[in-house]
Design a protein around this nucleic acid. Structure first.
Length: 583
DNA sequence: GCCGTTTTCGGCCCGACTGTTTTCAGTCG
């Protein structure tokens, strides 16, 4: 049985709620379950995978006891202790917890009043039954809007989508002359693969006026909260947006505080506590003198703690605080370092394609690469499907395409033009062989290989397939290695350490695919692969030229995985790249 | 229940808003 991180977090939150309701243990035991749920929910690795590899202890907040419980859960599908503590609590209580604003106490109270499920609750609020049975009208109203929000929120937003929405809001905010600075916050600023709601901070002397201005933004459907210096709204699209306004003299602390992550901040505050400081969004307080030191910038804030400022992308309490204290933060790869995109699909004519072709011509792709300031671009179409087309036909098609590319790249011999790389993205078949014969692969400049079917194979099967592809001398790059699709499909299960080891030995490149719902290789696996000396390439896998702009989201994944410029081959200049790929 | 440059006990991040609370409980980020 597979248990997703989200489901796992929910199971632990249910236990926490049961502890609360039955008054089992103290507040810290209750919080321990919530802390673990948070950590699991925000983990980029699949917890069940870690369990299989015996690495549960790598997740902070999972101590001896919780590890035992998870072991029992994954082995037997249930946990005796959990069942015991939840005994006697109606199942509906745990469903009610999903409503924003409803915690254990209110959930239990609702169940007591005979609420059967979420639909029933909606009915009872509309009919006034809830109020007549003792709930205040205001609380009933809040629960109702929580219910409506729950209906709207299906998935977390994909990072590029969230960025597009955020840009509109940023543009609106920047128009107000009272606003001195504005930043995205939270998972958006940390460039996590998915984003729950959109948070922004603003530096201004006129806090109240800015909050008013924000609440009047076009597209606001509802103002949820409004305070002196903060507000929460819901847009007509259902997206929740938070705004926090701070004075310029303390803006650094505000920005730091709400960028998170939660785990990063908790660790930071624990550390500060030992040094006699208390941290908040207002600044650094000396506990002895009770004096608050304000900070204009994040850099000042971290400096007061004697450390470097970690880039937002790596603020996950995964070693960045220790590195910053030693002034040894890595020099992460940047978008400006990128010199080319080697995985773009064109509309080159093809019969019986194995997978979706691109919509733009090779000429237009080259033109776009020039506009982006790239030194090189790789055209990597899918070949014809090997089952529908004969071996001879595939070879013939590749010959024709190779000739076509050679013709249009003639001007690129001049120094100012973009170099064009003749490539294909071939399938790694069920047995690990490729969908294109070696004879045809020999005609290409380089070969990208990826799994495009049977993603749900067993750990052994997937590992074997990838291994065999890595052994193939024609394969240069493995595309989107885990094959996850965000909000749709989990990563394939494989022995990643073994794969990283072999990839490093054989000088094979792993792709960080910047396609919005892939962002694959995942950030945590990038970090793991780095320790084996694996090199990466960040590609957009664009199927239309506008998607070539997604590069920066792939860069974000690399940064979150602590990759530096030298680890990413498409930051290299043409000479180094050509030498590596023997072009 | 977790955790450790005060390690196996004794702490545990910090502050906000809402409701109806006249000093606090519940919930959230």
């Amino acid at each position: 049985m597979e248990i997703s991180n989200q489901r796992l977090a929910k199971i632990l939150r249910n236990v926490s709620a049961a502890y609360t309701l039955k008054k089992i243990g103290n507040i810290f035991q209750i919080r321990a379950y919530e802390n673990a749920a948070d950590a699991i929910e925000h983990s980029t690795a699949e917890i069940q995978d870690l369990w299989q590899e015996g690495k549960l202890s790598e997740i902070p907040t999972l101590g001896e006891k919780l590890q035992d419980y998870l072991d029992e859960l994954f082995t037997k599908g249930k946990v005796k202790h959990f069942e015991q503590v939840e005994k006697g609590i109606p199942a509906v209580v745990f469903d009610l917890l999903d409503i924003g604003g409803v915690g254990p106490k209110n959930a239990a109270k609702l169940a007591e009043l005979g609420v059967k499920d979420l639909e029933d609750l909606k009915k009872k609020i509309k009919s006034g039954e809830l109020v007549s049975k003792g709930f205040s009208a205001k609380i009933a109203q809040n629960i109702m809007s929580g219910l409506l929000d729950l209906d709207q929120q299906e998935h977390r937003m994909l990072l590029p989508y969230a960025f597009a929405q955020a840009d509109k809001i940023l543009n609106y905010l920047k128009k107000n002359p009272d606003i001195l600075e504005v930043h995205p916050l939270g998972s958006l600023r940390r460039m996590a693969a998915t984003v729950g709601d959109l948070d922004f901070s603003v530096s201004s002397e006129k806090e109240k006026e800015v909050v008013e201005y924000f609440c009047k933004m076009p597209g606001v459907s509802r103002v949820v909260d409004k305070g002196e210096n903060k507000a929460t709204i819901v847009l007509t699209s259902g997206i929740q947006v938070d705004l926090l306004v701070g004075k310029p003299e303390s803006y650094g602390a505000l920005l730091q505080h709400f960028t998170g992550s939660k785990a990063h901040n908790i660790k930071l505050r624990t550390l500060a506590q030992q040094k006699g400081f208390s941290l908040s969004e207002y600044g650094v307080k000396n506990v002895t003198s009770n004096k608050l030191q304000e900070t204009r910038t994040e850099e000042e804030f971290y400096k007061l703690l004697g450390m470097q400022t970690p880039p937002p992308e790596i603020r996950e309490n995964s070693g960045e605080i220790e590195a910053a204290l030693k002034h040894k933060l890595p020099d992460l790869v940047t978008f400006e370092d990128i010199k080319g995109d080697l995985h773009v699909h064109s509309n080159f004519k093809i019969e019986n394609p194995s997978h979706g072709a691109g919509v733009d011509s090779i000429e237009n792709i080259i033109k776009r690469a020039e506009e982006l300031g790239y030194d090189y671009v790789g055209i990597a179409d899918h070949p014809p499907g090997f089952t529908a087309v004969s071996r001879e036909q595939i070879i013939k098609w590749i010959k024709k395409r190779t000739k076509f590319i050679q013709q249009i790249r003639q001007p690129s011999e001049s120094t100012k033009s973009v170099r064009v790389i003749n490539s294909l993205e071939v399938d790694i078949l069920k047995d690990g062989s490729l969908s294109v014969p070696d004879e045809a692969l020999a005609m290409l400049d380089l070969c990208i290989a990826g799994i495009h079917s049977g993603h749900r194979g067993s750990r052994g099967e997937i590992t074997k397939r990838l291994m065999r592809a890595l052994e193939n001398p024609y394969v240069d790059i493995i595309s989107h290695p885990t094959n996850r699709l965000l909000n749709e499909r989990e990563s394939s299960d494989a022995d990643w350490e073994e794969i990283f080891k072999v990839a490093s030995e054989k000088n094979k490149i792993l792709e960080i695919n910047a396609y919005p719902n892939r962002l694959d290789l995942r950030d945590d696996l990038v970090r793991a692969a780095l320790s084996f000396g694996v090199k990466f390439i960040i590609n957009t896998d664009a199927h239309e030229i506008s998607q070539m702009d997604n590069m920066r989201f792939g860069v974000a994944v690399a940064r979150r995985g602590w990759a530096t410029k030298k680890d990413v081959v498409n930051t290299w200049d043409w000479t180094d790249l050509a030498r590596w790929f023997k072009l």
